[in-house]
């Protein structure tokens, strides 16, 4: 149930900003209580993400990137502050199946074929067989895995497995895609290739993407907005709006505009780090 105050707050938000706000985070903090005392994973996070944005979280490991993404996905509960996803609580958004989440590892089920893995969320959603079949085919093609439907995950390379896990997230047909270092474990060449594919996909479908990485070129290449986080306590150090054209290919990495943004990210990371020393 929404209280009157919350509704008012929501209306105000809707009026003060564009109507297409996907994620709205206010003053959010999260402290883990551990045996070694509290860990301030997130502190005072303020962040707005609009529809169609490609947002990257970048920062050294342990700065709370994963935790922030998990809060958005309702896999972690904030200890203070507020957050809405599509205008509702993260829990409601999760129940509405508003997002697809791609984990750091492919997390495919080894007893299911690739097609059956992609079908997993569709079975849970209770879609009809024809609908499942149609979405499997479409998304397998989208990630260039057509022809591998009947293979088992352990028969595919790491890059193919990760693509399958992306197809699985896409099959839900969410408007919001949350990705936690999806290409972190892959080698540079495969990663470049997948980055390009991901960008094409995003341009084609106008999805909102939130993408965690610790690679500066990856963040700059993909994003319309780069959020630089720094650790202890995890907080936002800088938010960079990229003015690179939406339609880009890998060559853009040599341009001065690209290098300028990359430089600013690097400076942010450095400053955020030295803060504590």
């Amino acid at each position: 149930m929404l209280t009157a105050a919350e509704i008012e707050d929501g209306l105000e938000d809707a009026m003060s900003s564009q109507a297409n706000r996907v994620i709205d985070i206010d003053n959010l903090s999260l402290t883990f209580e551990t045996n070694d005392g509290p860990v301030h994973a997130l502190s005072d996070i303020d962040l707005k993400i609009e529809e169609g944005d490609f947002v990257s979280f970048i920062g050294p490991s342990g700065c709370g990137k994963t935790t922030l993404l998990r809060v958005i996905a309702d896999l972690e509960q904030p200890t203070a502050g507020s957050i809405t996803v599509n205008g509702v609580s993260p829990e409601q958004a999760r129940i509405n199946r508003a997002y697809g989440y791609v984990f750091q590892a492919a997390a495919l089920y080894p007893w299911r074929t690739i097609a059956k893995n992609v079908a997993l969320p569709l079975e849970i959603m209770g879609l009809s067989r024809e609908e499942q079949q149609q979405r499997i085919q479409k998304n397998m093609e989208l990630v260039n895995l057509a022809g591998f439907e009947n293979k088992y995950p352990w028969q595919l390379s790491g890059g193919m497995q990760q693509r399958a896990s992306i197809a699985r997230a896409l099959a839900v047909e969410p408007d919001l895609l949350l990705m936690d270092e999806p290409f972190g474990a892959l080698d540079e060449i495969v990663r470049d290739h997948l980055n390009e594919q991901l960008l094409q996909l995003w341009a084609k479908t106008n999805k909102t993407v939130v993408f965690v990485t610790h690679s500066i070129p990856e963040a700059v290449f993909l994003s319309t907005k780069i959020v630089v986080l720094c650790p202890r306590p995890g907080r936002i150090y800088d938010v960079i709006e990229s003015d690179l054209p939406r339609d880009r290919n890998l060559d853009i990495r040599e341009t001065p505009e690209f290098l300028k943004i990359a430089h600013r990210v690097r400076e942010g990371l450095k400053a955020g780090h030295s803060y504590e020393d």
């Binding site: 998990r70 996905a73 309702d74 896999l75 999760r94 129940i95 199946r97 997002y99 697809g100 989440y101 984990f103 997390a107 997993l120 969320p121 849970i124 959603m125 839900v172």
Partner: peptide, 8 residues
């Protein structure tokens, strides 16, 4: 967590 994101 994966199952949770599907609201399973």
């Amino acid at each position: 967590d994966l199952m949770r994101t599907y609201a399973s």
